[in-house]
Design a protein around this nucleic acid. Structure first.
Lengths: 222, 222
DNA sequence: CTGACGCTGTCAGTTTGTTGTCAGGTTCAA
DNA sequence: TTGAACCTGACAACAAACTGACAGCGTCAG
């Protein structure tokens, strides 16, 4: 795990640094948002631990710059206040986690590990179909980077199609994946879900074709 | 992903079931090897999660029965012991993966996904006739790699011809294959379907010749 | 507990697509 | 040349699929 710590309190910074090093992680420390921004430019980290109250630019400012540059680096915010306001703005700005001082070093490390794990899972689980991205872990669907809001049923169906591109799926195939055998359904339920799914897929490069009398077939069409 | 879970520990089973459902998979649960065997007879699953210690027949017994019946269903074994012996026997009996309790649900799901992904690469029931490829599982027809869009009737007829290359087929042979005996048809229906099929086969190396007064004959002509 | 809301399946009416029939043309063998 | 067998364009019937409206159910906040 490679960590960048941005913290102006020397004492706190030193103990965090020690703790992470002792636990076999690589940790670099800077004491301002500006320095952090510079280092992030030419180095890759797994996670950024970011204090809010910094001399000069605040942690929030750095975070919002990162996110507007589409930088998806996991960020864990440290703050002295347990303010709801702070928490909300942190998460709104795209922080991945949040810790209030004082905290236990073990907890900080655990949360970092969780973020890294989550992040790794993400990249593993992202399936790309033209301009559509589907994350099988988070179930988030994006078209041209825009999140598409879908119902669970629609997502299930989309996942099935995406993992079976260019393969015929009969209604029965679909039903078997969407329903357990103790659940009743009519063919129409599938059609209805499909209608809703197709509506959401307008503008994406995933196309679900009907093969009348046989089933459905999804393919990517750039 | 369609999963069959065989696990006699109710609590564990319930949490696995929930986790998979929440993640958009269809999961069915049975609590004995016998029940699992029955269900596997008339239903298709993508993966079987199988506990070793079960009341009655053990998971190992079920696994070995499956494999001796040439059932290639991906199987993931769950066991309480980290014994080398257990591990070896599981893999020897044809398990595809192995997980020691207690485990993280996310890991279980990830391993199942991996198994399913691996399995999908395999299935290849493709029949090649010159530049024409027919997949008997998906019923997809390709000529020079291009998918040819056909109606079910035409596909049925093509399949019949392809599996009887260079063999005479009378109209009756064809009719018997395309229609159930309670369905009426006129010879002309077959001719019509044949016309449509031939249109689709233009450019392919499969040729259906008419043998006047007798029937039809398909052959590959490169 | 209650009301509001959101998800998802059902219903019903409409649209769309497939496939057999018909009718007229073409081919072929005697 | 003739007639039977075959081919094929047009059409219609029927079934499959689509979709808007609605209702049941579960969930959540107050």
């Amino acid at each position: 795990m490679r960590v960048l710590l941005t913290e102006d309190n020397q004492e706190l910074a030193r103990s965090i640094k020690h703790y992470f090093k002792d636990n076999g992680h690589a940790i670099d420390w800077v004491d301002s948002a500006e320095k952090a921004a510079t280092i992030l430019h030419h180095d890759d980290f797994d996670v950024l631990i970011l204090d809010v109250n910094l001399p000069g630019k605040s942690g929030f400012e750095l975070l919002s710059t990162l996110r507007s540059n589409k930088n998806a680096l996991p960020v864990l915010i440290l703050t002295a206040r347990a303010d709801i306001d702070d928490r909300v703005s942190a998460l709104d700005l795209g922080a991945d986690d949040y810790l209030v001082k004082p905290f236990d070093l073990r907890e900080l490390a655990a949360r970092c590990r969780a973020l890294v794990r989550r992040e790794r899972g993400k990249s593993d689980n992202e399936i790309l179909c033209g301009n559509l991205a589907f994350n099988s872990a988070t179930k988030i669907v994006k078209v041209d980077g825009e999140v598409i809001d879908m119902r669970p049923r629609e997502v299930q169906m989309l996942e099935l199609f995406i993992t079976h591109l260019d393969r015929m799926l009969t209604k029965d195939d679909i039903a078997n994946r969407l329903y357990n055998f103790d659940e009743a359904y009519t063919p129409n339920a599938i059609e209805q879900t499909l209608t809703r799914l197709r509506k959401h897929l307008q503008g994406s490069s995933v196309l679900i074709k009907t093969v009348r009398g046989m089933g459905y077939l999804a393919h990517v069409d750039d």
